[in-house]
Every structure is written in structure tokens, then in C-alpha cells.
Simulated assay, not measured.
Amino acid sequence: MNNTHDHIVKSYDEEQGRLLGEILRMGEMAAAQLEAALDVVERRDDKAAERIIANDDAIDALEQEVSHDVMRLALRGPMARDLRVILAALKVASDIERIGDYAANVAKRSMALNLAPPLPHTRGLGALGRLAVQQVRDVIAAYHAKDADAAQRIRARDAELDTLYTGLFRELLTYMMEDARAITPCTHLLFMAKNLERIGDHATNIAENIWFLVHGEDLLPPREKRDETNTAV
């Protein structure tokens, strides 16, 4: 009887390990996609941008695998602690999939941006992007380690990304008002910047799910938000 029980526990642990591996692989792919997208903006490389857009399908496929594995684990009647692992995995995979989508969107916009002469504001976009990449990589590492304290620090750092985004947003609006020829390329940059800001929000969602995974329903401390673009003039 004990042997059967041990086998079931071992099998369950192996499936959880497989699920974790899939999510970590998804996270690495999404972070690499984002880095590549930022690189093609700098290099104005349409061919590389097309490859990034095509690669988004691989992240979507992995999310489907995660969903199937979560369903299989859920049907085995998990205990409360294991149920948190399963719920967090489903939510984290969804956030990573969205991060991959936003990275692909940045690559798509870069191709439209390349139709106009280079703008100096792509440097500001690069700084915003590097911070977004760091948030994604750090939060995936925190998820791997089940480190709620690291997740809380990453969550708090989102205010820094919001500040950079708001600054770039205002700078681009000013430039557009000064030079009508800049309206189209600056609009593409605004959408790209918003994609990066949303990636930061999804990294924050993952951080909150790490907290839930470790602490259950215990409330998180309040978080500062500094996206002031709704009030920017």
C-alpha cells in the first residue's frame, strides 16, 4: 500500500516539476523575444523583426501545454497547497504569454517605424525596454525560487518603469506638437512604449502570484503606481 502511495506522490511531484520547467522555458523565451525586439528597433532590421513575430507561436504553444498539464494535475484532487501551485502556474503562464505578445507587437511596430528616418527618442525606448527585460527575468527567477520577498521588491520597482514611461510619453507628445512630420513615427513609438509598460504590469502580476503561492490569501502591502499619462497634457 505504501509503495502505491509513494508512487502516486512521486508521479505527482514529477508532473509539478514538468509544469515548472515548461513555465521557466516560456519565461526565458519571452525575455529573449523582448531583448531581440529591442535589438531590432535599434538596428532597424525588418527581417529579424519578422522572425520575432513568427517565434511568438512557440510561446503560445507552450502555454497550451501548461494548460493541459494544469488540467491533468487539477483532476487528481490536489491538497490546498498544491492547488495554489496549480492556480499560480495557470496565471503565470497567461502573463508570460501576454509578455510574448507585447514583444511581438514591438517588433511589428519597429517595421512601421523603419519607414521614417531614425528618431533620437528610440534611446528612451531602449532604456524603458531594458528595465522591462530586467523585471521579466527577475520575476521568473523569483518564481523558480518561490521567493516572495524578491517578488515584492520586483513589484515595488514597477513604479520606476512607470516613471520612465510617463517621461517618454510626455517627451514624444511635445515633439509631435513641434513637428507635424514626426506624428506618425512618434505614434508608433508611443504604442511601443505602452507595450513595454504593459509588460511591466504583467511582471507585477507574476510577482503577486508568487506572493499568493507562498502566503496564500495574506494581503500584499499597497503598491505605488506612477503612470501619469492619463493626466499628461
Rank of each mutant, 00 (worst) to 15 (best):
T163Y: 04
N230K: 10
F169P: 00
V106W: 00
R72V: 13
A93V: 03
E228C: 07
D56T: 06
V92M: 06
D39A: 13
R51P: 01
R72I: 12
A232P: 08
L75S: 15
E42K: 13
D218I: 06
G21R: 13
R44L: 10
V85K: 13
H5C: 03
L75C: 14
N3H: 11
C186Q: 03
D82C: 04
D158N: 15
H202N: 09
I23R: 10
M71G: 08
A80D: 03
D82H: 02
D60I: 02
A36Y: 01
G17W: 06
V233H: 09
I199G: 00
T4D: 12
L90P: 00
P117L: 11
V106N: 00
G129N: 00
P120G: 11
T187S: 15
A107L: 05
V233C: 07
D13C: 04
V41I: 12
N2W: 02
D57R: 15
E50A: 14
A74Y: 13
D69V: 05
L90M: 13
L173P: 01
L115F: 03
Y175S: 00
R198P: 05
T187L: 10
D46G: 14
P118Q: 10
A148P: 12
A151R: 10
M176G: 00
M79G: 11
R198A: 07
I210Y: 03
A203P: 09
K10S: 13
E14M: 13
N209H: 14
V41R: 04
E50G: 09
P118G: 07
I210D: 02
M79K: 07
L173Q: 09
A30F: 01
V106M: 01
E28R: 15
N205R: 05
D6N: 14
A150C: 08
Y165A: 05
I99P: 01
K91V: 09
W211F: 14
L168W: 04
H188A: 06
D56M: 03
R153Q: 15
A116E: 09
I52C: 05
A88H: 01
G27W: 11
A48P: 01
G167D: 14
R123M: 04
A232H: 07
A89D: 04
M71L: 15
V9T: 12
A74Q: 08
D138T: 11
F212Q: 06
M176P: 00
M79Q: 11
C186K: 00
D45V: 06
W211V: 10
L173R: 11
R25Q: 12
I23W: 05
A88I: 04
M29E: 12
Y143G: 00
T204C: 10
A104D: 06
P117W: 06
V136F: 01
M177S: 11
R76F: 02
H68S: 12
N195C: 14
L87C: 12
N2K: 08
P185F: 07
R153T: 11
G77F: 08
R157A: 15
L73G: 04
H5A: 13
A48R: 15
R181F: 02
A37V: 02
A207P: 04
T231C: 02
L115C: 08
D201K: 11
P78K: 02
D60C: 03
R25Y: 05
D6G: 02
Q135I: 02
D201W: 06
L115T: 10
R72T: 13
